[in-house]
Simulated scan of single mutants.
Amino acid sequence: MSSSETTQVCSLPLPPVQYITHYTDDNIRRGRAPRPPPPIHDSYTMFGNTFNADDPIIRPLEAQGIKRLYPQHFDRRRELRKLNHSLLVNFLDLLDLLVRCPESPKRAEKVEDLSLLFIHIHHLLNEFRPHQARETLRVMMDLQRRQRIEIAQRFQKHLDKVIEMLQLALQNLPDTSDFDSKLIVPTESYETMDTSNQDTANSDTYAVLDEIMCNIADQL
């Protein structure tokens, strides 16, 4: 590469589609999909600033070399209101200074004061990020819970309707008790045969059997 050529490096990551194209089913099956980045254990650089992996998510102002304008224990709402008022007053002072004496060295001091106030406001707002993340997660979980309850209720309604339809179909079935009773063979005659004299003639036995068969035929 010649000295006249410059390397262009994007400060932001590429769009997700640049990564999705590498994670096809064929690449994943053959092991060609890019591996996820390894976890960072020491330090890393983001947007030109160096961060340590052990640092808290929201670093205190003292760790960033910034003078704190409010005490350690404070009411965030009250301090944000005070910072907002101070920001407005300093901005009006800067405007007045620019009108009266634009070349005054106090102009740089007012700009530094405004920058410091903006940093404090930004820091206080960032301290609400964990609370915002928890609330967002709570809302998402509550929405999922209500959706699952609604799906379960709809499923129960469909189940009750199916059970009702089955019960109605069973009630509308024809009664087969009369038809089944016609196929029942009366056993009284057999009991009579068992209790009768075993020495009865074969002709009497055949007569009883013929009578039973005739009764069955009549019932059919």
Rank of each mutant, 00 (worst) to 15 (best):
R81H: 07
D55W: 12
H41S: 09
I119A: 10
L209M: 07
M46T: 09
T6R: 13
P13K: 04
I28G: 01
I212E: 00
Q64C: 12
M141P: 00
P71H: 07
Q171R: 11
L14H: 07
R32T: 06
E127Y: 04
S104H: 12
L114I: 12
I149M: 04
E150A: 11
A169D: 10
K67T: 15
I20F: 13
F155C: 09
Q8E: 15
H122Q: 04
V89P: 05
R76W: 05
I151L: 12
Q219H: 04
L166N: 06
N172F: 00
M193E: 01
N202C: 01
Y206V: 00
A33G: 08
T7L: 15
C101I: 03
T192D: 03
A108Q: 15
H73C: 03
H85N: 07
D178T: 04
P13C: 06
E150K: 03
F91Y: 14
S104F: 08
R138S: 10
S196T: 02
Q198N: 02
L80A: 07
D218T: 06
S86W: 07
T192K: 10
R68F: 04
Q147E: 13
D26R: 14
L183I: 08
L125I: 06
I184N: 01
T50V: 14
P36R: 10
V89G: 04
Q167H: 06
A133W: 04
E79M: 13
G65L: 09
A207D: 11
F91T: 11
R30K: 14
S2G: 14
Q8V: 15
A108H: 13
A108S: 15
T50I: 12
Y19W: 13
E62A: 15
L97V: 06
A133T: 11
Y23H: 15
D160T: 11
H158V: 14
G31Y: 05
D160C: 08
H122L: 03
K82F: 04
Y19H: 05
E79W: 05
R81I: 01
S203P: 00
E79R: 07
L83S: 02
H41W: 10
A108Y: 14
S43W: 01
Y190R: 05
N126R: 12
S196N: 10
M1F: 13
L209P: 01
T45V: 15
T176W: 06
P71G: 11
